[in-house]
């Protein structure tokens, strides 16, 4: 099951009729405590229908002075009296509810994944062809989309570097324009210069890996030296790591060269099919 399809606890800080308001400082402390533990907080001054995923759970927190207010929606509702509790204790109560309902632990997955700027994207499918982890897919309308966010390798922005239109963002990346900062003319010129990843590596990366595989196989037959083959592969990929700011963990988790070849061919075929379908529309 996708890491994203687990229940979430969403908290509501209710300060409307039937619940006494907090002062600004108390409210700020409570907000920070809940957010730091990964809980969303909706601040409300009146009870109303709330839109939540059906698998999620609501915790309504307030200093209740009368009957519980009526909240409408499809999610189960739990009330939490916060009078006499400090911010940490309220956050602990939310944490206990999270455990009780089997909701996702905060920070279990760092939300690192590509975001497509469709105002720039030309649907060229280079990202689909490039990604080895099946993060990208094609919609029924033939449009490139990010389909499996949790397949993406944390801190790896490599696909954004092969996008010729600077259309792929990683909002948590350190530098622009990959972090979503405005795209300058210099950025576009740089991308045009490296549209073909081979320009970075002096040859097609998959071809390079294939060559290495052939050489490694040849050596294996003579020496059966697994350690040496691994070192060769690491040397080959070190350049990729340096040039494209790819974390070593990602390099280490790459499939074998043979698997890469198969995946690259499959991805290229999917990209060709998607382009053909898109042109036929």
């Amino acid at each position: 099951m996708s890491k994203l399809a687990t229940p979430q606890v969403r908290t509501v800080l209710y300060e409307g009729p039937g619940s006494a308001p907090l002062d600004g400082e108390e409210r700020a402390r409570l907000l920070a405590a809940l957010l730091d533990k990964g809980f969303a907080v909706t601040s409300l001054r009146e009870a109303r229908e709330l839109t939540v995923r059906t698998l999620d759970v609501l915790m309504i927190a307030g200093r209740f002075t009368g009957p519980a207010p009526a909240f409408h929606g499809t999610a189960p509702v739990h009330f939490c009296e916060i009078g006499g509790r400090d911010a940490a204790a309220v956050a602990d109560a939310a944490e206990a509810l999270r455990t009780e309902v089997g909701a996702a632990r905060a920070g279990a997955w760092k939300p690192w994944f590509p975001v497509i700027d469709y105002r720039r994207c030309t649907n060229c499918m280079q990202c689909l062809s490039f990604c080895l982890f099946d993060v990208y897919g094609v919609s029924a309308a033939g449009k490139i989309e990010v389909r499996s966010q949790d397949n993406c390798k944390t801190e790896c922005p490599a696909c954004s570097r092969v996008c010729p239109e600077v259309a792929i963002m990683f909002p948590k990346y350190r530098h622009g324009p990959i972090n979503g900062d405005q795209v300058s003319q210099d950025d576009i010129r740089r991308e045009v210069m490296k549209v073909d990843i081979s320009a970075l590596l002096g040859g097609d990366v998959y071809g390079l890996l294939r060559d290495r595989t052939a050489k490694a196989k040849s050596r294996f037959s003579k020496e059966r030296d697994d350690d040496r083959a691994l070192k060769e592969r690491q040397n080959c990929l070190a350049k990729l790591q340096k040039e494209m700011d790819i974390p070593m963990e990602v390099i280490a988790s790459l499939p074998s060269p043979d698997e890469i070849r198969v995946k690259a061919e499959q991805a290229a075929q999917r990209a060709r099919d998607a382009r053909a379908a898109s042109e036929a529309l």
Partner: peptide, 27 residues
């Protein structure tokens, strides 16, 4: 956050907008 809390306005505070987007949260 301090200014937001002091304002008395209704608001939505989320731990991480990226995560919310990935979950396709209907909110």
């Amino acid at each position: 956050l301090a200014q937001l809390a002091a304002s008395g306005a209704e608001f939505e505070a989320v731990p991480d907008l990226c995560e919310m987007s990935a979950r396709r949260d209907p909110r």
